[in-house]
Amino acid sequence: MADLLTIENAGNLLMLLFLQAVLGFDNLLYISIESQRAPVAQQKSVRFWGIIIAVASRVVLLFVMVRLIDALSDPFYIFDWEGVLTGGVNFSTVVFIFGGIFIMYTAVKEIAHLLSVEDTHADIEGKSGKSALQVVLLIVFMNLIFSFDSVLSALAITDVFPVLATAIVLSGLLMLLLADWVTAFIQKNRMFEVLGLFILLIVGVVLLGEAGQAAVHGAEAMGMDHDSAKDLALKVFGYEIVPMSKSTFYFSVLVLFAVEIIQSGYSRKLAAERKAQSGGSLHG
């Protein structure tokens, strides 16, 4: 126990908490939006149990990855279609590709649903026929997809399991505290749901970008030098698939929020001017 109570582990824990908070934003957004697909009376419990089970699953995933990191990192297939598709594929590559496509599909489907000609009030009351169990299972499943990014990044900081597990549990508690607030905010400000779905669309692109370099990171984790590992990067028609940087991702999110806020303010201003003009014409 005394070996765990060191300044190095304390510093790593603080770094991991910050990392989990940054990488957990898109996960929390997904949970808040997806939980609204459940029956209204069960949405709060869906968020609670979804996060609890997801955090427990993430700790199990972390334990497995610590034990099997070499097996998960080792490329199991090398594409060699020169000029078409080249590069290595490991387990993380498959997860990122599958997760990215699924998140993009979900975002596009929900955006199309919002644009469909349906009764908006009915849409707010119950957005889909999904049961609470279906939503919880989907939240847990997608949390595991998001987990690969944060767990792999966390393992780059430290391999001390208790420190890693503590960071995951504490970040889960933070998500429990914020989930209801984020959901309530989205429900009160409906235009931000569309914004959230477009952010999820970007998240899908980010995951696909991570897939392109997953085999490279895995090879480097196994001790291969950087130049040799770079040959494992996925290339499509000669173009290397590179991940979007976190700074670019959050800058894009901030720009989307700024555009939405400015546009909403401008719309209110135009509505007030039209109301004033129509009131003046009636008096005239």
Rank of each mutant, 00 (worst) to 15 (best):
D80A: 12
L144E: 10
G279Y: 01
K235C: 09
H113A: 08
A132R: 11
E273F: 13
V64W: 11
S45F: 06
V84E: 03
E193P: 00
N12M: 10
A21H: 12
L72W: 10
K230R: 08
D74V: 04
K44M: 02
F251G: 12
H226I: 11
V163F: 12
L62Q: 05
K275C: 06
G88Q: 04
V216E: 07
I139C: 01
N189I: 07
L195T: 14
I202V: 13
E125T: 05
F141K: 12
K127V: 00
V40N: 08
R190V: 00
K130V: 00
R67E: 13
A56Q: 01
R268Q: 15
L62W: 11
E240L: 05
I101L: 15
V160E: 10
V259P: 01
S116K: 09
F91W: 15
F192D: 02
F146E: 08
I199N: 14
A122G: 14
F76Y: 07
F146S: 11
M142N: 09
D80G: 00
L170K: 03
I186Y: 03
V94P: 03
S247F: 13
S57G: 15
V194H: 01
S228E: 14
K188M: 01
L133Y: 00
A167Q: 08
F192R: 01
R268T: 15
R67Y: 13
L282E: 04
D80R: 06
F91M: 07
R190K: 09
P39T: 08
D74N: 12
V95W: 12
A41W: 02
L144H: 05
L282M: 07
L170N: 04
Y105I: 05
K44A: 09
L208D: 13
L137S: 03
V59Q: 03
G284M: 06
D119C: 07
L176P: 02
L207Q: 14
K235D: 01
F237C: 07
G100P: 14
L234C: 10
A233T: 09
L4Y: 03
I31P: 00
I51C: 06
E260N: 12
S278R: 13
L133E: 01
T6I: 08
D225W: 08
G196T: 05
A276C: 03
A211K: 05
F141Q: 11
L85I: 07
I97M: 15
G196H: 01
V160S: 10
L115H: 12
A132W: 07
M1D: 07
R47Q: 13
M15C: 02
G172M: 05
V151M: 01
F198E: 04
L270E: 15
I53G: 07
K269Y: 15
S252H: 07
W81G: 03
V108P: 00
S153M: 14
F63N: 10
G196P: 02
S92P: 02
R47N: 04
F148Y: 10
M175Y: 04
Y77F: 15
Q20C: 03
E8V: 11
E260I: 04
S252L: 14
T120F: 06
K188I: 00
I261Q: 03
I261T: 13
Q213T: 15
A219R: 12
K246I: 14
L144D: 10
A54M: 04
A71Y: 11
L164T: 09
F198I: 11
M65A: 13
G100N: 10
